[in-house]
Structures are given as structure tokens and as C-alpha cells.
Design a protein around this nucleic acid. Structure first.
Length: 255
DNA sequence: ATTACTACCTGACAGC
DNA sequence: TGCTGTCAGGTAGTAA
């Protein structure tokens, strides 16, 4: 579920809920969550919570807890433990359940702030965009590569490409200056609007209080195959790009 | 070094 | 009802 806007939604809520508070201990309920000795993390002050790409980071005394939601991970404040609760973070004033049906998510502990991913699309300047687009591949796979730019996933990539009028299979390196500028502008507009609405809930995503996001009501292309394009009326198509379902308008997004 | 593809899990849904 | 196949928002790991 979680792409940049969903991770940002969770990080902001957790910053308010747990920054400055004491993390008493972590209960690991499924060993797939981590290989790190999280049970030994005791009595840590959470300095702050921030987002790194699609990940949620908690800064604690001994380093950084890196929470990756995978496809179906959620973080629920003071929710009852359920069948898919894989870990519980116990605080002085409540607890956080890490629920994850498919178990692609993880919680790891690192001594340092992670830095292996590409730039954040909300902080990139024009030069960053030009250098990330210097790539011998189609545009969509390039945008999905977290080492090139961190935070975009399947939903927002399709929405951004539609808004920018760019075909998902166009070679990244062939974009002209005006197209790159359109891509930059649409990326920021769509991500900021999605954050404003608490992210997209397609099936699993909910915030720490269990509330769904509302940006899915503004999706114009994602999972709308067969419907008329909202801009031109042409039938929206679904193709497979980089093994992911990909939605686009053949009239508005020409190769 | 970069790019492409499989595998990891579980559940929802469509069709027979 | 129950089986089978397809699809699903991510990303390690491996192969070319």
C-alpha cells in the first residue's frame, strides 16, 4: 500500500503521537519481520519520526528503526492485536501494532540514517531530475527505481505520467526540456495533493487511527481500464510494464 | 555498473 | 461449494 504520501501520512501522525516519548520494548510476533535483535531494544527515547522514501523512520537512542510497510503493512495506534499483527512497539503511553497480511514489510535497526536511495521527489531540483532521467530504460521503470528516486510506486507513477501526458514506455533519455519540466511539476502537485488527502486506500491502507485515505477518489487513471479518459474520452488501457499493471490513455500519452 | 526478472506471502475475486 | 487461475500498492536477490 504505502508509497510516499501514505508513508508521509503515517510519519506525521507518529511524530505527534510518539516523538519525545519512551519506547519501552518491542514484541516480535513473526520472525519474518526482522533478523535484528529488536527484543533487546529497551527504554529508548524516540527523538523524532520521519519519512525516507516509502519508509517510516524512528530515531531512537541507539540509532534508527526503519519500518518498511511492503505491500500490506499498516501501523495502528492502540489497536487490538489481530491475526496479522507481526510486531508491537510498546510505549509509556500506548502501543503501536505493525500489521502486515502479506509479510513483505519489515522493521530493522540501523546505527545510521539510511542513505542508499535516490533523492526525494519533493526535494529534487531540475538538475536532479535531468540526472535521474539519464537512463537506458523506459520512463516508468526508471521512476519506480528507488535508487534513482525514492518514494514513487505503482499508483502515483501512473497518475503522474497521465497528468504529464507521458507514455510509460517512452525512453527516459528521450524526454525534452518541456516534458521534464511537466514531469517535475505534476509529480509535486500530485504528491502534495495526495498527502493533503491522507494518501490512497485501494484495499488495505489506513492511517494510525484506522481511517482510510481519500486520494483514491481523485485517481484519474489507476485501475480504470475500460473507462473513458477524463481528459479526452478515449478508452483507458491496461498494459504490463516492469511486471506491474500499468494504466494509461493511448490518446493523451502517445509514444 | 546497470538492467531485468523471479520469488517472497496471503487474500480477494472471477469463472468453471 | 470448491477448485483453479489471476491479480495485488514493494523490493531482495540473482542473472545477464
Amino acid at each position: 500500500m504505502p508509497e510516499l504520501p501514505e508513508a508521509e501520512t503515517l510519519a506525521r501522525q507518529l511524530q505527534n503521537l510518539i516523538a519525545g516519548r519512551s519506547l519501552r520494548q518491542i514484541t516480535v510476533l513473526s520472525q519474518r519481520v526482522t533478523r535484528d535483535p529488536l527484543a533487546q531494544v529497551r527504554q529508548q527515547r524516540v527523538d523524532r519520526v520521519q519519512r525516507y522514501g516509502k519508509w517510516v523512520l524512528l530515531q531512537v537512542d541507539v540509532g534508527w528503526l526503519v519500518i518498511r510497510l511492503g505491500m500490506t503493512g499498516t501501523l495502528r495506534w492502540c489497536a487490538p492485536q489481530g491475526p496479522y499483527t507481526r510486531a508491537i512497539l510498546h510505549f509509556e503511553h500506548g502501543w503501536l501494532c505493525f500489521n502486515d497480511i502479506r509479510q513483505f514489510g519489515s522493521i530493522t535497526l540501523r546505527p545510521q540514517l539510511p542513505n542508499e536511495l535516490g533523492p526525494d521527489p519533493l526535494e529534487m531540483d531540475h538538475r536532479d531530475w535531468c540526472s535521474m532521467l539519464r537512463s537506458n530504460r523506459a520512463l516508468k521503470p526508471a521512476l519506480l527505481d528507488q535508487r534513482k528516486l525514492r518514494g514513487l510506486g505503482n499508483i502515483y507513477t501512473d497518475e503522474i505520467l497521465f497528468a504529464a501526458g507521458l507514455h510509460p514506455l517512452v525512453e527516459a533519455t528521450r524526454l525534452g526540456e518541456p516534458q521534464i519540466e511537466r514531469l517535475e511539476r505534476c509529480t509535486v502537485e500530485i504528491l502534495e495533493r495526495a498527502i493533503e488527502l491522507g494518501g490512497s486506500s485501494i484495499s488495505d491502507f489506513v492511517d494510525v487511527y484506522g481511517r482510510p485515505g481519500r486520494y483514491q477518489f481523485e485517481h484519474r487513471i489507476f485501475r480504470r481500464a475500460g473507462e473513458p479518459c477524463s481528459r479526452c474520452g478515449e478508452r483507458i488501457q491496461r498494459i504490463v510494464v516492469a511486471q506491474r499493471g500499468t494504466y494509461y490513455c493511448p490518446a493523451c500519452q502517445r509514444l
